[in-house]
């Protein structure tokens, strides 16, 4: 998902005595493979991950790790394992989260299976570095997202980011990681940007589609071309470490709309929509994969919030069959609408 294969492979390559294969970058072929062997009405993250697994197995992988999720995704891994076994692949399938819970003993046993010399103390140390790496990556990412639409020299941000990721993957210990991070943070801040009056747009929605650029047809890149400042909440650090902490706060902030958790990120998105409205963002974009049940549930609440605060919102559902031209047309119209609204802010609206 995105660039997160870097910390993941960093962790496993240091902890396990095994050859870690980089999961191949998602391409059209990935989704083609995934769709071919998936049920048609399953959401696209299932198809993307299944496609990636097939590509990985074809390249010779024999162990697959999977993390579960808080929605239907929690049950997907069993199904994916069955599909892959039916296709005749021989491999070991390790699911870290079963039945919605991470069982540490089970994980330990599973890892012992792969590597008899597996050392949990060493694993903890590298887990620490890896989580820090994710945190730094996300921080830099946030900064890039806010500024990439305004860079003076094209591609400078992307290039610097690639350099940083390359150095990250070669990190030896925590101190060198921190130094690299600081070095690149300085570099990023020194990149020239031309930013005056900006339009601010928040992206919310189902986590996989939000985080994997291929799955949302490079939505952020398209928006940056218009010169829009983008805010996005969901990233790996949020999902792994902040989510559980924030749920209560989110539910409290939105108690006039929701009472209980809605599964996956749905209630988070309701709270974020409200937050974006209160911060007077010019627009909100909600994206999800087709058939994502939790997000369908929160869409109507978000619409209600947005009409109360008079903030325009647009909904996109992505699938393997989505037409790219259609998305571009709607995005362009959305951009022109929020620009028009911004320029005529003073006019009353009934």
């Amino acid at each position: 998902m995105g660039n997160y294969y870097i910390p993941a492979s960093y962790f496993f390559s240091h902890v396990l005595n095994a050859k870690i294969m980089k999961s191949p970058k998602i391409t059209s072929k990935t989704i083609e493979l995934g769709s071919k062997y998936s049920p048609d009405f399953v959401c696209s993250p299932f198809k993307y991950t299944l496609g990636t697994m097939i590509e990985g197995l074809e390249k010779g992988a024999n162990v697959i790790f999977q993390l579960g999720g808080g929605c239907r995704y929690g049950y997907y891994s069993e199904l994916q394992e069955q599909i892959l076994k039916d296709l005749g692949y021989d491999f070991l399938y390790i699911n870290f989260v079963t039945g919605g819970k991470a069982d540490i003993k089970k994980i330990y046993r599973d890892l012992k299976k792969i590597d008899k010399k597996f050392n949990p103390i060493k694993a903890l140390y590298y887990l620490f570095i890896t989580t820090k790496m994710i945190k730094y990556m996300d921080k830099i990412d946030d900064y890039i997202r806010k500024n990439i639409g305004f860079e003076v020299n094209e591609n400078e941000f992307e290039k610097t980011n690639d350099e940083m990721l390359k150095e990250f993957s070669k990190t030896k210990n925590y101190i060198s990681l921190y130094r690299t991070y600081k070095k690149y943070r300085k570099k990023m801040k020194s990149i020239k940007v031309n930013k005056k009056e900006v339009l601010k747009v928040g992206i919310i929605g189902e986590l996989y589609t939000v985080m994997e650029p291929f799955a949302n047809y490079f939505l952020e890149r398209e928006l940056a071309k218009f010169g829009i400042e983008i805010t996005r909440f969901t990233n790996a650090h949020y999902l792994l470490f902040e989510k559980t902490r924030k749920v209560k706060k989110y539910l409290k902030n939105t108690k006039e709309y929701i009472k209980y958790r809605m599964g996956a990120d749905a209630h988070d998105n309701v709270a974020r929509a409200k937050e974006l409205c209160e911060k007077k963002y010019e627009g909100i974009i909600h994206i999800k994969s087709s058939f994502c049940t939790p997000e369908i549930g929160c869409m109507h609440i978000i619409e209600k919030i947005c009409s109360k605060y008079d903030v325009p919102v647009i909904f996109f559902s992505f699938d393997s069959n989505t037409s790219e031209v259609g998305i571009k047309t709607r995005l362009e119209a959305f951009y022109e609408m929020i620009e028009m609204r911004k320029n005529n802010e003073m006019l009353p609206r009934d």
Binding site: D310, P312, S317, G326, T329, R330, A333, E336, M337, M340, R341, N344, L347, P348, R349, D350
Partner: peptide
């Protein structure tokens, strides 16, 4: 439209 500016729009999907 309100006061001659676009404030909201929708287009059919799939």
């Amino acid at each position: 439209l309100r006061n001659g500016i676009i404030v909201d729009y929708a287009m059919n999907t799939l």
